[in-house]
Design a protein around this nucleic acid. Structure first.
Lengths: 120, 120
DNA sequence: ATGGTAGTTCGACAATACTGGAAATATCAT
DNA sequence: ATGATATTTCCAGTATTGTCGAACTACCAT
């Protein structure tokens, strides 16, 4: 389930997150939960030109950090929680002299409807 | 203690780790523990030309992920565990609909002498 | 079919990052 | 001082990344 992260994939994921717009974008999607957000809504929220956003979305997708689904005219993007868990897992692996210092963290997405929507 | 990570610092740290040589380098130092390693020893272990290694060491240092101390002719580098904890903290912040899913992880360095040195 | 909306791809340019040899600096021993 | 060792800085070339307007594609409604 927690798909295994090797060095290459980790580098890909880190590189994807190592950018102002993409980090903000990823965090936005993490907070958006399982329902995700349409590209247009993201562009509005982050105030990024359409084509630039598309570039960053593709980048994060390539890195396996977000997923895309279509819903009529809109493309909905959502964070891949397993990927985030895998990334953190790889980073904290072997961090305390071999002792597993991190108790197998697993973050899971939340549905918008289950958090009494407080966004505008 | 766990110095606060904002977006800018996180991007700096992610960018620093998002490279084959630097990720390997950082992991090497994490495993080396509190005693760290001399630049030369790192160059040997990773088989990177001297000047390139220096470039990457400077990059990781700039990002606050490793620290430098001198010991006679050698410059000893060691992982900054607080930085790693801060980075992971920032990434997992707000990951489960606001619930703190990660029990305040804090990895701490280990001394070489305390792990019955098994390296060559 | 026509037209409008949602997003992506293309292209060209600017900026930044990586690499490694050669020269420079710092430290130590004699 | 001289020489050896440890490491960094400089430099120039190459490669990768980011930006955004304009043209394109996909989908939906009528």
């Amino acid at each position: 389930m927690t798909d295994r992260f090797d060095a290459d994939r980790t580098i890909l994921a880190l590189g994807a997150l190592a950018h102002e717009n993409r980090l903000a974008l990823f965090r936005l999607l993490v907070q958006a939960g399982a329902d995700g957000m349409a590209a247009g809504a993201i562009a509005d929220a982050l105030d990024i030109p359409n084509s630039s956003l598309s570039f960053h979305l593709a980048h994060l997708t390539r890195a396996g950090l977000i997923r895309q689904t279509r819903q009529s005219r809109s493309l909905i993007y959502s964070a891949d929680y397993a990927a985030m868990n895998g990334l953190v897992g790889y980073l904290t692996e072997n961090c305390c002299g071999g002792a597993a210092c991190l108790p197998d963290m697993t973050c899971e997405p939340v549905h918008e409807t289950s958090i009494s929507r407080q966004r505008a």
